[in-house]
Amino acid sequence: MKKIQILGTGCAKCKKLAENAEAAAKQLGLEHDLVKITDINEIMKYGVMMTPALAIDGDVKSVGKALSVDEIKAFLK
């Protein structure tokens, strides 16, 4: 199972990234667990200084962008 982590404090861009990540995983028929990490101290443990960020299985793939569904699918494949 893929663990999809959305790092962001909950602003509009963070929510959009979470929505798109959920859609991407569903479109790929991927068994997944989407986790929203909203605590800034927890976010900083990833070394990330900008949000939203996307991590997959703990590996940060993107920082500072609300990626599109297709962009996220490319990371999930």
């Binding site: 070394g47 990330v48 200084m49 900008m50 960020a53 940060v60 793939k61 920082v63 500072g64 962008k65």
Partner: peptide, 22 residues
Amino acid sequence: GRMYCLAGIGGRVSGIVKTTEA
């Protein structure tokens, strides 16, 4: 600016590398 961890670049810590790229 913000001093950032060079060791994170050397260690390829994904969050640090991606933040630097951005």
